[in-house]
């Protein structure tokens, strides 16, 4: 990125509705290998099955922390694109319920912006593997929505 102090990338991503431009600003999400596609209901996020995503090698199961990181990333990107105006979402709290062990298979996630206020947003995320009817985890979170000209860090 040529101008790292600018948040132009966020407005550009929103203008062309391109999650990839957002991912370019997120090295960790790129390392996880997160991919984004779109269907009739909105964005669908995908965490690829990769050996270094495994936590419990005995099952083997996707690492719970990697699952959480994936769902958090999905929520941030979804929010950036879904807000009525361009704002920078900052996660204030995040709570994940693990419903069953994630196998070493691609994991998908979809987000729902439950409430968009002026300063705060509430989101739900759900994650599944083989079938969206059989969830592996759900999460909820609150984001603080910072104006782009007031995004200096605390």
């Amino acid at each position: 990125m040529s101008d790292t102090s600018s948040l132009d990338w966020l407005e550009q991503s929103r203008a062309i509705n391109a999650p990839d431009t957002i991912l370019d600003n997120m090295p960790y999400a790129r390392w996880l290998g997160i991919e984004v596609t779109r269907d009739d209901s909105g964005l669908v996020f995908m965490l690829p099955a990769r050996r270094d995503m495994i936590g419990n090698p005995l099952l083997p199961a996707i690492h719970g922390g990697a699952m959480g990181a994936f769902m958090e990333t999905a929520a941030i990107i979804d929010t950036m694109l879904a807000l009525r105006t361009a704002k920078m979402p900052k996660i204030a709290n995040f709570s994940i319920d693990y419903l069953r062990a994630g196998k070493c298979q691609p994991t998908y996630a979809r987000c729902e912006l439950v409430r968009e206020g002026k300063r705060l947003a509430n989101l739900r995320v759900h994650a599944w593997q083989a079938s969206e009817d059989r969830l592996v985890a759900t999460a909820r979170l609150h984001c603080v929505l910072a104006e782009l000209d007031q995004t200096s860090i605390r």
Partner: peptide
């Protein structure tokens, strides 16, 4: 890194550490 433009760590890294 989770936000190159502001120099911040990705929240997911924090989740991974605390989960482990």
């Amino acid at each position: 890194a989770g936000d190159l433009s502001r120099g911040l760590v990705h929240g997911g890294v924090i989740t991974m550490v605390l989960d482990t």
